[in-house]
Design a binder for these strands. Structure first.
Lengths: 210, 210
DNA sequence: GGGGTATTGTGAATAAAGTCACAGCGTTAT
DNA sequence: ATAACGCTGTGACTTTATTCACAATACCCC
């Protein structure tokens, strides 16, 4: 009932709600949230039903308490540290992209094979030695890693991370990761996405995908 | 029958097949391709059925002709030019990531609001003036754009691109794009993906998503 | 206060995606 | 030759995801 897709949409709803809140709105209808999120009112209502949140027929949903409810549901009870593996162009862009200190998800360090990068602080994030990865990850209890290394390095890095206790990987390398059942892998395959867009741009198709 | 997801998997199959080919293999079984792709043999067979490709019961699929068949299906008949909009950290990383000259999809230029970047060549790609976007895009017949601008700029940029003839957008900005029906938008929402991974890392769930 | 209105919450229906399972067949071994 | 094997191609089925549609509800206006 709380599948992969629902989690993604809840995260999206939260961000949209925050931006509406910043605009001064206090309530929102399923219909309006749906049009911001690019889906249907029925889906919004069902998703919110899934986390047990109720609105009022007259005012819709209270934005403040809805954000709070989504946070309670999505966020870890205690802040969750994350590491970035690979400080190439993409790794640096990701550091710049993610706010230095998200409330509950913080990138606490980076690793790179290049010894020249070790010890340096890039975008406010310190780079540690490649060999120390297992030790640091397991000592600090990191359970989520972002993999931004070349495809050839990705499988080996994933194995090392999993051995050190990682249970979730955000993988930008176009390579299958040989991880055990209990590890969640989210692949972001840029080439695939670009090819999909190019394909559908030629067809007259309308779609919005996460 | 040839849905969004199938297209994504075909693109993935092609890459996996190419790498197997580079390793010297000439044939592959649905079972083996599935394990590379992280799905099931039945799904591989059904996907290939969708593009009308047949293998042999004894040898499986001929890798060379399968790649060719996927190319015929996925690739544009004539090379397709692409523009990158936004030359910040992420834009530069994307230029570095995509091979300078993919066979059928080539990034032919970039745009940025920053006048200091205009005229420069970054990662082998020339940056043009922000104001010239409509003109250049429509004159060169570009139909696909990669949006790597801040969320606040994305909707306006999307509108301008669509007006200039763009029919497909790869959008990295966490903002809904107000585009007409016929324009295909593929959203890559990094924050959402990271939150999903963090969420499932705490559960004991196994999944692979594109 | 009472009727009208617009919205929520949700069971039921529909659609989409993925899996099963088996007939058919080329290959190989005997 | 012929039998046995293991794969593909595919109809039927299962599961998952989404939409429909409507009763229940809170509010507003008169």
């Amino acid at each position: 009932m709380t599948s992969e897709k629902v989690i993604g949409r809840l995260s999206l709803y939260r961000r949209l709600l925050k931006s509406q809140q910043a605009l001064g709105q206090s309530h929102i209808y399923s219909h309006d949230l749906a049009s911001l999120a690019g889906n249907t009112a029925a889906q919004v209502r069902r998703d919110l039903m899934g986390i047990g949140f109720s609105g009022s027929p007259a005012r819709g949903y209270d934005i403040g308490s809805l954000i709070e409810a989504i946070c309670r549901f999505l966020d870890p009870p205690v802040p969750q540290p994350i590491v970035l593996v690979g400080l190439g162009n993409l790794g640096r862009a990701l550091l710049a992209y993610f706010p230095r200190r998200r409330p509950h998800l913080t990138i606490v360090g980076a690793f790179d094979v290049d010894p020249a990068k070790v010890g340096r602080v890039v975008m406010g994030c310190r780079c540690y030695a490649w060999e120390d990865m297992e030790r640091i990850v397991s000592e600090t209890g990191v359970e989520v890693a972002v993999l931004a290394v070349p495809a050839s390095e990705a499988p080996a890095a994933a194995i090392r991370l999993v051995r050190a206790g990682v249970r979730g990987l955000l993988n930008f390398a176009p390579a299958p990761l040989p991880v055990p059942e209990h590890v969640h892998v989210e692949n972001i395959d840029l080439t695939m996405s670009l090819e999909k867009v190019a394909f559908f741009a030629r067809r007259g198709s309308a779609a919005v995908a996460g």
